[in-house]
Amino acid sequence: MDDGLRLLRAARHTVTGPAALLGDPRLRSRAAEYLTDLTRPYGRRVPDGLFDAPPGALGQSYGEMAAELIPAVVPPDEPVDLLVLAFAVHDMLPGRATAAYLSHVCPGTPMSFALCDQGSAAAFTGLRIAREYGCRRALLVTVEQAVLPYDAAVPVPARHRAVAMLYGALAGDGAHGDATGNTARPGDNGATGGDGGAGGPDRIELGGGARVTALRQHADVGTGDVTALAAAEVRELTSGRTDVAVVLGADLAAAWPGPGGGAVTTGPPRQPSTGVWWALLDRLAGDAARPRPVVAADYEPGLGYLSVVALEPAGRSEPVGERGAHERAQPLVGLRGADGDPDPGAW
């Protein structure tokens, strides 16, 4: 089965500089009032003087983080039809309709909205919605910042990070002239699979792109059940294949019954909204010379969502993903480790 989307291009970055908008005293004042009112009913407090700090110490604007990535993945002549912004931790301008602004700066002035209150599952839900829209191109951006401006008593992401992924419909394949995603454009910095450092967005080289061949989400999955369910999903989606890479978000990897060994790539810790996608792009870029299918999975422990996506790089004839019932009984070979790693070349 095919899920009707191809990952055409991707870019990401780790933001270290200040948010320019937070240098505007009027917007700082509005944000301070909003956040103070937001926290008061819940017995939390914005520290006195927080908004007297330099912008660099305050946190980020997701509008700026996402807008910087758009030129790296969307050329002006490839209009986007749908833009979805996914986040869990909010930014420092929490009342802003950021997605509406991003529509304005994205070629095609796409229909846009944000998804939240779903933890790490939100980006997977965004991808699922993009599939249902059946549009020519959909841009999925997932963002997180390493700051909460009140005493939340929960871990925050380790770094300010954003990942943008341009998906195209399989029919016509979305791109003009070059469906491979290899065209250099303004905004590219030439990086391939880098760490998305402070030098600006890194465009990830995806060769001919990757088809989304399966996309599944499970709700109400307890921590005691997630490893078995995730393993079963990965087993089903990789069944009969010896060359499938597996990418796990850090929360799922921590509970993974592995061995897994070299076939499994783990997302960076404490990046719940971007981690699995960051690692997925690493995997796809790392395999560019020898493309192979990838299954990526993540678990949102606080809300109980398990999300799984399978992708098939271009140029391969047999998709990973939905397979016939007779194939599902095949052993899971992609996750064997110490007793015979079938994929010694993987990370």
């Binding site: 802003r96 997605a99 509406a100 909205f113 944000a114 998804l115 939240c116 839900t125």
Partner: peptide
């Protein structure tokens, strides 16, 4: 409704 996929859609005011 814990079995349902639940999320917030926003930023269209």
């Amino acid at each position: 409704l814990g079995h349902a996929l639940a999320f917030t859609l926003t930023q269209q005011s």
